Computed example of a mutant assay.
Amino acid sequence: MSQANLKKAVGYWRAMLPLGLAMLAIFAAAPQSAAAACPDIPMAVAGPMTGDWALMGEEMRRGAQLAADDINAKGGIGGCKIALVVLDDQGAPDTAIAIAKAFARDRVRFVVGHYNSGSSIPASQIYAKNNTLMVSPASTNPGLTEFKLWNVVRTAGRDDVQGAFAGEYMVDHFAARNLAIVSDGTPYGDGLANKVRKALRAKGHPEKLAIKVRYDQINFGDLIGRMKAAKIDVAFFAGLGDQLGRLIRQSDEADMHLQFISGDGAMVKDLTGLAGPAVQGTLIVFSPEDRSNPAAKDVVARFRAQGFEPEAYTLKSYAAVQVIAGGIEMAGVQAPRLVAAAIKSGKPISTVLGDLTFDAKGDRRQPDVAMYVWTKQANGGLSLEPMK
């Protein structure tokens, strides 16, 4: 994002803040009650609202907004309403850092975000120094919580859980095949690839080829040539869906019909458009279907009534707002450090994902991993379905 665009975005965001924001520091340290007048609670959603991952950003925005609306409709948190604002980090670390600094200057103490681990990790360190609690509904790189910052929580799972699951699945189902691991070189990709590699080797079936591509690469001729030479049958791609789709299509066009497996970064609606029919059979590791959770039934129905399908990160973002609200209620104050401590206390918080509990690092204790496959439907279309 250019400096001009960043200033414009931050200026718009500041204009959206309630006039009482400057008084937040006075009120945050004191318990709130429904009877006492209290200013709105500034809360922000930070994610990729434009660019390659805008679909995920829209899911984050929609999920967080409905959660805030629902909480406000019930009287808010201790009588205080949530004032939600949205800012676009474009999935870029430098923009995320600039946004985090802007939030710090303007005393925003609760953030739902970011999407990309490469954005969440540096932003979280700025938030930690500036008394801001961050709850990510999407960043799965283990490093995000391994820094053991006081202010980091996530409603998503971890790549090491995804990676271990994927590696074990590859050995259990493709033990006679030649395996490859491809990373996009980002913190997300490298973290996921390393866990897959560790799982493969722990089961005595190391990969035959490990290689990195650039995160913005669109031509994979050299990679496909190397995989052909190594007689690769199964490839795990640790990266995002836009690249995976191109890699699947280009491999198919090169008459190399691989079994592709990938992680949650490949959960994009337009993967079929990028990959074409060759996407059939591609395996994706992601969390269990949140929409089928009984706790989410009413929220899912209301999203669908709005003409919006709450896929991927929608309900995790809704839950992120619930976690912040639950932490404030348990702490009895809006002080972020006390709210974070309450969230990480191990006490259950009721969410659309069910009751969630968090460890001292901020990771959810409940398992969050399952395998999906792109399947051809009776009407000839392709859809992503849970493995049976």
Rank of each mutant, 00 (worst) to 15 (best):
D242P: 09
A325E: 06
S136G: 02
S345C: 11
P18Q: 00
K231C: 01
A37Q: 11
S117G: 12
R107W: 01
H114A: 10
A229T: 10
G221C: 01
V234M: 03
P294V: 11
P187M: 05
R105M: 06
I121H: 04
F286M: 11
K228G: 13
T186A: 02
A100Q: 05
L384K: 13
F308D: 11
L144H: 04
G239L: 10
P386N: 09
V111Y: 09
D355E: 14
A123Q: 10
C38H: 12
G221L: 02
S136A: 12
F308H: 10
L55Y: 09
G245L: 02
K231W: 00
A340G: 06
F308A: 09
V171K: 01
A44W: 02
G326I: 08
M267I: 14
A4S: 14
E311G: 13
F260W: 11
S33V: 04
A37S: 12
A98H: 00
L382M: 13
G326L: 01
M134N: 06
E253P: 02
F27R: 14
D40N: 12
A342C: 09
I82K: 08
G221N: 09
A325S: 15
V299I: 15
D359C: 01
G362H: 04
P336N: 06
I99K: 00
I77A: 01
K347L: 04
